Amino acid sequence: MGATAGVLPAGYRHTRAALCIGRGEDTFLAASDALSRWEVHRRAGLRVEASGPAARGTDVVLRWCGFRIPCRVVYTIDGPFRRGFAYGTLAGHPESGEERFCVERRADGSVHAVITAFSRPGRWFTRIADPAARAVQRRMTARYLRAMAG
């Protein structure tokens, strides 16, 4: 299991964000299905080249604004109230770290999109432009959360 499943490592930026995306089983199932099929990433504006649905060991290359963003799914979550996955960055990714995408159905019936991540600059240009890279990461986190709502 990856580090986003527990205490996030020191020396990285930490991101934790959530958004209520609706209520009920239908919302939970639709959002978790879209997430596992990479549809959430497409809705967020990325091109997706994946070797299959999000499963442990699946490689995916995301493309955005000319950037090639390679990742590998390091674990999945498949429970009755929580579903999702985490991927880690691969060589060539602008950042170094891990990001978990999760859909949670809570006791009150509400359904939440939840993102947990840790990262730091992984390439020379993201080290130089770190404030801009942080802004992009915040923007993409918000887009992912909204995209889980459909």
Rank of each mutant, 00 (worst) to 15 (best):
I77R: 09
H93M: 07
G11D: 12
C20D: 15
R63D: 00
A31T: 00
D78G: 09
E49P: 04
R16D: 09
R13F: 15
E98W: 02
R43Q: 08
G24M: 05
S51I: 03
W38I: 08
G45Y: 02
R13Q: 14
R37G: 06
H93E: 09
P53E: 10
W64Y: 12
V61C: 04
Y75N: 12
C20H: 13
F85S: 03
A10D: 15
L62Y: 10
R47C: 10
C65G: 00
I69V: 09
V61I: 10
R13M: 11
T89W: 03
A18Q: 12
V61D: 06
G22K: 06
P80S: 12
V74A: 01
C20L: 13
D78E: 11
R23A: 12
G97Y: 01
A30C: 11
V73N: 02
R43A: 12
D78R: 09
R63V: 00
F28R: 02
G88E: 14
T89I: 08
A17Q: 14
H14V: 02
V61Q: 04
R68T: 11
R23Q: 15
S36L: 09
G22S: 06
P94A: 11
E25P: 04
D33P: 00
T89L: 06
R63Y: 04
L19Q: 15
F67L: 15
L35Q: 05
A17L: 12
H14W: 08
I77V: 15
V60P: 01
D33N: 12
G88I: 09
V40A: 12
P53M: 03
T76V: 13
G11R: 12
A54T: 03
A50C: 10
P94C: 11
R43L: 07
S32K: 04
G79H: 10
L46M: 14
V48A: 03
